[in-house]
Design a protein around this nucleic acid. Structure first.
Lengths: 235, 235
DNA sequence: CGCTTCTTTGAATTTCGTCAAAAGGCGTGG
DNA sequence: CCACGCCTTTTGACGAAATTCAAAGAAGCG
């Protein structure tokens, strides 16, 4: 036991992994959960680590990134409250294919592969949920692959910003704020470009009033204009 | 009933979707399968079609491609015997996110979403298999995304060729032949480049003796050299 | 207040896409 | 069996988007 932290079963109900499960099932699930409080910048797992677990984020934010043998890095995904992560390698090779870092103090629950296997046996709905979630991610990944293969950088950055706003947007007085703390490098790594190009584009957008950024906090001011860029300004 | 074609349950055992299932289970599965013989160039489904089904290819080959609103196209995957497809949208929005075309005369089995849901209830191993397969695809997709975001075209083409050889390679007298019929355009669309660049690269490799191509048939002659290119010749 | 991390900006370089056109192959139908 | 036509491939030249190289400036944190 890493920690004796306990959690109320009903707080698992809001996780995408456990949609449509009975209270009894949630109690069963909560029993085998390992709960951890993660400090900012804590590494949850590293690429290549053995002993895969299924993770679900209760609160906070996490960045999932992958590095190639040449050091080039891309961001696969940002994880917000309620989302699961670390499930790509489930039932396959048993090694994490990416790094996970907490971007803020976070609270996560996790289960070993064996535990999750047993839980799925008792509650098949969990397996259905996993399939649905992974399927959606695969779709997003396919969209990104198409974008990066066929579109210019500015359009890709626009798509990335819109996706992030949809995933973790939060209406504030002056627009839609993206919950995740985003450096220029993060925007670059999720759009498939360089830090420099991302900086140029975001600065230009900021000057044009499309968004504001301050202290790693992006706030979209004119979603419609960014959407126009994403859809191809030449139309 | 589209067709009254029947199939022996044990011929389902070799499909990745039905690994580790009992003969009885395979019989159950076979009963609800819809079997179709597909002519070359037949469209199995189109992007946006409603009424998603789960497909498994018994024999032949299929190309899964996606087009953006601007007409740009990329190839998501080639499907060979034993592989499942059309599963990305399972339990989500109910519309196919890509096109599927038979590249040769092919034999496929398929099930409706409801049938597959029921089968998974009775045989949870199917759900586990789906998770494993989609997880692997997601990993491949992530690798491709990283490649296309960070590597030069030649390396990406090298990776694509190696992946295809691993997936559907077939040892012949003069090397490893890739089963799928591949036009230059297909290689381009799976590597994230243009027809022209793909042609230049493959022609150069052919002149250097790394591979031979004839009538949409690619045969890798020097995998080690292509691997060297994939890993980054500048190292 | 100093240090580290992050951001901005300019200039040069280059890979790769785009445009254009010709040549090659394969199958079909006469 | 030959010829025609369509699909596919090849090749060259050009241009431009974006990376790379370089360096300074800003900002937050301890």
């Amino acid at each position: 036991m890493t920690a004796s932290v306990q959690i109320a079963p009903q707080s698992l109900a809001s996780l995408e992994l456990f949609q449509d499960l009975s209270p009894a099932a949630l109690g069963d699930i909560a029993e085998s959960a390992r709960i951890r409080l993660l400090a900012k910048d804590a590494r949850i797992f590293n690429q290549g680590d053995p002993g895969v677990r299924v993770h679900a984020l209760i609160d906070g934010s996490v960045r999932i990134s992958q590095s190639g043998s040449d050091g080039a890095q891309i961001v696969m995904r940002f994880i917000g409250p309620g989302e699961m992560f670390g499930t790509v390698a489930l039932f396959t090779d048993g090694r994490y294919p990416a790094d996970a870092v907490a971007l803020a103090q976070s609270l996560e629950a996790s289960w070993s592969e064996a535990q999750m296997f047993a839980l799925m046996g008792r509650h098949p709905q969990i397996a259905i949920n996993v399939i649905r979630v992974i399927g959606k991610r695969l779709q997003v990944m396919q969209d990104r692959l198409r974008e990066v293969s066929t579109q210019r950088v500015e359009r890709r950055v626009a798509h990335a910003v819109l996706r992030l706003a949809r995933q973790a947007g939060h209406r504030t007085i002056d627009g839609t704020a993206i919950e995740f703390p985003l450096r220029r490098k993060d925007v670059a790594d999720i759009s498939g470009t360089t830090l420099h190009t991302a900086s140029r584009i975001l600065t230009a957008w900021e000057k044009a009033g499309l968004l504001v950024s301050h202290n790693r906090q992006l706030t979209v001011r004119q979603p419609s204009e960014i959407l126009r860029i994403a859809e191809g300004s030449s139309i």
